[in-house]
Write a protein that binds this DNA or RNA. Structure first.
Length: 591
RNA sequence: GGUUCGGUAGCUCAGCUGGAUAGAGCAUCAGCCUUCUAAGCUGAGGGUCAUUGGUUCGAAUCCAAUCCGGAUCACCA
């Protein structure tokens, strides 16, 4: 049980004994005591005045005395200031916490709870390479999965590859028109970038054709539909759904180039999946479900054969689920996938990590699943995250302002290299060790940067200013860890029983922080919010830094103090490491 | 226009289930390396918490209105 929970329980017990209840933990707040006051935790009394019929000072005094009398082993003292009851916890409580847990590398993690959760993330289109927005998605999804695991869930990471559809055909058409047989191999280019280039070429040509038609007197809206390259693309999609051999061959070939590129990127950034789904498989089931839904009367068919669902009663609109030419739209395959996921994994929660631009889409998906009576419908949860924007606004591929994922990773690793060389602390490292260190630091900086912000909120990334290595950053936490490890290479903690020694302020501030780690994991997982962990880990690192610049570990005042501080060092290192692990960030032993 | 999310220091962000004098980091300025790694530590300046009204003993936090910005409302994905 956490300290806060123990406090709540103790306070409720004493309130019930002193006054006429009933009382519950929700009746009052327990806060960490502010620096400027004496105490560890504070009970805010105002909300209890009415029920107890007391004034704040009397209530605080009575409650404080009762708590101290009832649990003298736990409480060390109290003071009342205005409406706040500040309580101090006995030093030996903190020291026991340390002795019991300092060597546990699973501190803060929970037992299996039997729940099965799927986290779908990444979900790329196979027509262009990954960009900065995908990185936020990948880091978020991976981290959320880790946090849920730490809370005892069995987690399955999944990825839906949007490998078919009109957008893929665009790259294919452009390749047919302009490539003259070039491949990633002949161009010495990463496959996803190679295919992405043709997606850009499509749009250039499309724009050119529209202009040409408009100049010949056609309305712009008509020209957009009549442009030959667009018509050819639509033809190709039809052929694709019909299984045309030539089209399928080209599709397989180009997708394989993209997969090769993606795999390289995923490997680099540490994204992995327990299951990869392909839209080219799931869309057929979607179509089947649409057919069944028509029979059930959930969907309705227009005279032109297109199929719709009417969600106006739910405050939304009419939504198309199948085009008049019989081809499926984006949401069709999602319906199929929702069913497949449940059938294969019998999951209790079905989390989708998808940008907030798709809030409406996900609302529709959930509603459709519910109306169809899919078994998993109510468990669909959209983890909606904000877009990553540039100082100039949204990233726009047309304006060439998209920050490419591979480029950014390479830049971060190069920056890590530059900093490391300037500092010159690891000159004895081998080439391999150096390369590994640069990746650890570069990726650590980038992941931390993208995860330290509340996922729900959009965030701004300034490519002009490279991601920092100082302050509230990944490398700051990594550096703290490396320095602790440096101490622990010279001095080891022993298991002997320690005499209790009075805790210094800076020692206790670390212990208070360490004690909160389990609660922090739970909160982060409940909110599906890695920034909670990032903020925590930063504060813990800061507390340790402040502590050990003032107090020596190796040359502590007494043998007891030395052991106490070594244990503090061990436990802080452990917690920093497992906290960062939840963010997908590795820790260097030296840097 | 409908729906929806947001507006906190020069910049990027915490704080939002109401509680003590609104916090970090960056940037700026002033200090600290013969002593466990200075990617560090200590300190200073910097705020009409978009605006107005309401609820409350108490509001950055809750409610309403207004202003500003984003997303979305495709036979695109």
């Amino acid at each position: 049980m956490s300290i806060v929970e123990s406090l709540q329980e103790a306070v409720v017990k004493q309130l019930t004994a002193l006054y006429t209840g009933p009382f519950a933990a929700a009746d009052f707040q327990v806060n960490q005591t502010k620096e400027e006051f004496e105490g560890d935790y504070t009970i805010v009394l105002f909300s209890l005045l009415k029920k107890t019929g007391k004034n704040p000072v009397d209530l605080g005094q009575q409650l404080g005395e009762a708590l101290l009398a009832a649990e003298p082993d736990f409480f060390n003292g109290f003071n009342v200031i205005k409406g706040f009851l500040n309580l101090s916890i006995q030093d030996h409580y903190w020291q026991k916490l340390l002795s019991d847990n300092y060597e546990k590398d699973d501190f803060g993690k929970q037992q299996a709870n039997g729940k099965r959760v799927m986290v779908e993330y990444s979900s790329p289109n196979t027509n262009k390479p990954l960009h900065l927005g995908h990185l936020r998605n990948n880091f978020l999804g991976w981290s959320v999965a880790e946090m849920l695991k730490a809370c005892g869930n069995e987690v399955f990471k999944s990825c839906i590859v949007n490998d078919r559809g009109i957008h893929i055909c665009k790259s294919m058409i452009a390749w047919q028109m302009f490539a003259e047989g070039e491949t990633p191999a002949t161009q010495q280019e990463k496959g996803d970038h190679f295919v992405g280039d043709y997606y850009v070429k499509f749009n250039d040509e499309y724009k050119r054709q529209i202009e040409e038609l408009v100049q010949d007197g056609m309305e712009k809206a008509v020209a957009e539909k009549e442009a030959p390259i667009m018509k050819a693309t639509q033809q190709m999609l039809l052929k694709w759904e019909a299984g045309d051999g030539e089209v399928m061959d080209l599709w397989r070939r180009m997708n394989s180039w993209v997969y090769e590129g993606f795999n390289e990127t995923y490997k680099k950034i540490g994204s992995d999946f327990d299951k990869t789904y392909y839209e080219s498989n799931t869309y057929l089931l979607g179509k089947k479900i649409v057919e069944e839904g028509l029979g059930k009367g959930v969907f309705e068919q227009e005279a032109d054969n297109s199929v719709w669902i009417d969600l106006t009663a739910d405050g939304l609109d009419r939504k198309i689920v199948q085009r008049r030419d019989g081809t499926s739209v984006y949401i069709t395959q999602d319906i199929g996938l929702a069913q497949v996921k449940y059938e294969e994994y019998k999951i209790d929660r079905n989390i989708y990590v998808i940008g907030d631009e798709q809030n409406y889409h996900m609302k529709v998906l959930r509603l459709i699943a519910q109306k169809l009576g899919l078994p998993n419908a109510d468990n669909i949860y959209h983890l909606s995250y904000g877009m990553v924007e540039l100082p100039s606004g949204k990233m726009k591929s047309r304006e060439g302002t998209v920050v490419d994922a591979d480029d950014l990773v390479a830049e971060m690793v190069a920056t890590a290299k530059q900093h490391t060389e300037e500092l010159g602390k690891v000159k004895d490292f081998t080439e391999d060790e150096l390369a590994h260190l640069y990746e650890t630091l570069g990726l650590g900086a980038m992941k931390f940067y993208l995860l330290r912000v509340d996922p729900k909120k959009k965030m701004v990334f300034n490519p002009q200013e490279s991601i920092d290595f100082h302050g509230f950053t990944g490398p700051f936490v990594q550096y703290t860890y490396a320095r602790i490890k440096s101490i622990l290479r010279k001095e080891a903690a022993t298991n002997e029983t320690l005499e209790s020694t009075p805790l210094l302020r800076l020692e206790k501030s670390i212990l208070v922080s360490l004690e909160q780690f389990p609660a922090v994991i739970q909160q982060a997982a409940a909110e599906l919010n890695p920034s909670v962990i990032a903020i925590y880990v930063f504060n813990l690192a800061k507390a340790f830094n402040s502590f050990y610049t003032v107090h020596s570990v190796a040359n502590a005042e007494t043998a007891e103090k030395k052991q106490l501080r070594l244990r503090l060092a061990v436990m802080t290192a452990n917690v920093l490491k497992s906290g960062m692990q939840l963010l997908g960030i590795q820790m260097p032993e030296r840097m």
